[in-house]
Simulated scan of single mutants.
Amino acid sequence: MKKIRIIIPILVVVLSFMSFKSLTESSKYKCMIQMTNYTGEGAYIVISLINPEGNYEKTLYVKGDDDEWYNTVESWWDFYGKRRTDLDAITGATISGGERAINVIEIDNDKLDKGYKLRFETAVEDQDYYTSDVEFDLTSQNVKSKIEGKGFIRYIRMMPQ
């Protein structure tokens, strides 16, 4: 009987502690990137979560698996390169002019409709670099839409998975 009297208060404390721990739920989105018909090497593309203050918060995806060229994505490299931590995104092969790629990115639900943005940066060897090839407010509506690019990306299309 004494064991039960001891275990029950401990169990209540543990369960109470666990109820205060917030678990952030996230959702997965298919993200199709359609490139313009440019000529040249494949584009390095970085998809980043930008906080309401306009600063990088997290790298969601990187297209381009040779880290020797990451510094060509200049603005992102200023953020990522200085931290020198493990890359917090999946990497995949570059995509070239006229091609398209579909990837799945995961976004915390508490970032939607809170002033966050998604930024798609692109860089192509011996060509231009676009800090905000595509950049849009992270809203419930925009994660279900098509958004035009300004550089190497013709458009991106987001779709909840």
Rank of each mutant, 00 (worst) to 15 (best):
N142P: 06
D137V: 01
V14K: 12
L87M: 01
T72K: 13
Y44Q: 08
N142W: 02
G98N: 08
K144M: 03
Q161M: 14
A93R: 09
R119L: 13
K63E: 07
S48A: 11
M159R: 11
G81T: 04
E68S: 12
Y56P: 05
I8A: 05
V14A: 15
K117R: 15
V46H: 00
E135M: 14
D108T: 03
S140P: 02
Q161N: 07
I10H: 02
L118I: 15
G115Y: 08
K30N: 15
Y56L: 04
I6W: 09
V13L: 15
F152W: 08
F20Y: 12
M158W: 04
R119H: 07
K21D: 00
F79D: 14
K144E: 11
L87D: 02
L15C: 15
D78Y: 03
Y80Q: 09
S48T: 10
E121S: 15
Y116P: 03
I33V: 15
V12D: 12
S16D: 04
F20V: 06
V14Y: 13
D108V: 02
D108G: 12
D110H: 12
I147M: 10
S48K: 00
V104M: 06
T72A: 08
Q127W: 00
C31H: 10
S16V: 14
I156S: 00
Y129G: 05
S48P: 01
D86C: 00
A123N: 07
K3Y: 10
K3E: 14
G151W: 07
Y70C: 05
T122V: 07
I4A: 12
K117G: 00
D133N: 08
E41C: 04
T122E: 01
K111L: 07
I33C: 02
I105V: 14
K150D: 05
M32E: 11
T91D: 01
T122P: 03
Y70N: 12
Q141H: 06
I90N: 07
T36G: 02
I4K: 13
R5S: 12
K82P: 00
I33H: 01
Y29W: 12
I4T: 14
Y29T: 13
P9Y: 05
T131G: 06
G54W: 11
I10W: 05
R5T: 10
Y130L: 04
M18L: 15
D113W: 06
G97I: 10
E135S: 09
D126Y: 08
K30H: 11
G115H: 11
D133I: 08
Y61F: 14
